[in-house]
Write a protein that binds this DNA or RNA. Structure first.
Length: 420
RNA sequence: GGAGGGGUGGCCGAGCGGUUAAAGGCACCAGACUGUAAAUCUGGCCUCGUAUGAGUACACAGGUUCGAAUCCUGUCCCCUCCA
């Protein structure tokens, strides 16, 4: 890559954020002119398909954060309107249609995430959040077709992956979904007109949608727009990043406690440490290079730093410190950290003792008694770090040395039970 | 509208009257090895039960049969081809 002049693109390149970009030099020149011409604003759209976003969206969010750090203006576009259509990109089947109340609820959840990562306000490079329902809901069909529809040919639309893949696999694509890209294109143009937004970023599956928006903006409004996509982030063994046993790794505290979030990063594979440090932390590159070069068990230090940094950003300094402390106490000192999932059980329940099996289910370390029984059979269940010998074992109040009991299912899952 | 094919456990996918709680694979969980890694090996993977076992289960509802995921009837859903 030839030398880039703008800080923003320089950083993005160095940290491997960029998969494809339109006219990188042109964009670079525009962004480098920051001091004279003011900040460039750029947007990323997020559909409101769930109450939270997961780490899959984190690359995108990090880009907005860097954008702001470099003195530009990030725009978060919530897809209040487009979510009512459903993006067919990268999906074999159309998604179930969401109700408006679902969408509104989801929007609230998602909104709260961005407060962690960006600074919102009215200043020149403060972030802003907009909802595309604001303009999409008002569109008039015939008028829209005449003004916008004339700029799209079916011939070209058929060549875009989101459409082509679906058709190639002989999967149905509804007319509703077919319109998604047009509406997203319209968004880009609208943001260009309203807020001088010149750049749209997104995941690699958004390339087609982004390019469409650029072309529409140019043809229909004479705007000069740019597009940039991130690579699909996969783990070293080729899986899509961000799925764990219990599902997605959510960014919202409500959906995933900070301790688990921290653990997710802590359990990164060796081979991914460098990549993740680049993308998901703001550590200087020298530091990243030093950390990823660590070998053997030393790389664990790098993973801890990764977990600290990532958690700090998403959940705040305190939560990160707490998660770190809990992990240290639990794993290094073999104790029980305060941040472990905790269940309070009325002390009366223990009169005469209760079966271990029930206790584990109660503590959320197993979804059924059978599952816990199997765990015990496999030798994976421990109480206060003592292996549970058999499923018939009973637990009574004598186990509560300091008012709590630590239960472990395997090496990584722990929970505390307290008397209440 | 017509003709045909199909709906099996989280997913893929065998089975097509009893030997089927249902092959195999993936995913997942635990153990061993380690470094809270990867790879590998071992065990597990519907619910209840210490267990012999029992209860549910192969889209849904009925029926035939000593016995059905397997045969029949109806319903719902999906796909393909034709118009």
């Amino acid at each position: 890559m030839t030398s880039l002049k703008s800080d923003f693109l320089q950083i993005l390149t160095e940290r491997d954020f960029i998969h494809q970009a339109t006219d990188l030099e042109g964009l670079d020149a525009k962004m480098a002119a920051l001091e004279k011409e003011g900040p460039t604003s750029a947007y990323i759209g997020f559909d409101c398909t769930g109450t939270s976003l997961h780490v899959g969206s984190l690359v995108q969010i990090m880009m907005l954060r860097w954008l702001q750090k470099c003195g530009h203006k990030p725009i978060v576009l919530l897809g209040g309107g487009t979510t009512r259509i459903g993006d067919p990109s990268g999906k074999d089947e159309s998604r179930k249609l969401l109700t408006d109340t679902d969408i509104n609820r989801n929007m609230d959840g998602i909104r709260s995430i961005f407060d962690q990562f960006l600074t919102f306000g009215d200043g020149q490079n403060d972030a802003m959040m907009v909802n595309n329902a604001e303009w999409l809901d008002k569109l008039e069909y015939i008028e829209f077709l005449r003004e916008i529809g004339t700029h799209f040919t079916i011939n070209r639309m058929m060549t875009f992956d989101s459409v082509k893949l679906r058709l190639d696999r002989e999967q149905p694509l509804t007319f509703l979904e077919f319109n998604y890209m047009i509406l997203q294109a319209y968004d880009f143009m609208e943001l260009g007109k309203r807020y001088y937004c010149a750049l749209q970023m997104g995941g690699s599956d958004q390339w087609g949608n982004i390019v469409n928006g650029m072309e529409l903006g140019r043809r229909a409004a004479g705007l000069s727009l740019f597009g940039l996509t991130t690579p699909l982030i996969t783990t070293a063994d080729g899986k899509k990043m961000g799925k764990t046993a219990d599902g997605a790794v959510w960014l919202n505290e409500d959906s995933l406690p900070a301790y688990d979030y921290w653990q997710f990063w802590r359990n990164t594979q060796d081979a991914d440490v460098g990549k993740f440090l680049r993308l998901f932390t703001e550590l200087p590159m020298d530091e990243v290079r030093r950390l990823e070069a660590l070998e053997g068990s030393e790389i664990n230090d790098a993973k801890i730093i990764l977990a600290d940094e990532a958690t700090k950003m998403c959940r705040g300094e305190k939560a990160a410190a707490k998660a770190n402390a809990t992990a240290r106490e639990t794993f290094v000192q073999g104790g029980a950290g305060a941040d472990l999932p905790t269940v309070v059980i009325a002390s009366g329940v223990f009169d005469g003792g209760i079966p271990v099996v029930d206790l584990f289910v109660e503590a959320g370390l197993g979804s059924s008694k059978g599952e816990v029984r199997r765990l015990i059979k496999g030798g994976g269940a421990k109480i206060n770090d003592v292996k549970v010998e058999g499923p018939e074992q009973m637990v009574d109040e004598s186990a509560f040395g300091e008012g709590q009991v630590k239960l472990s299912a395997g090496k990584k899952r722990h929970a505390l039970v307290k008397l209440g």
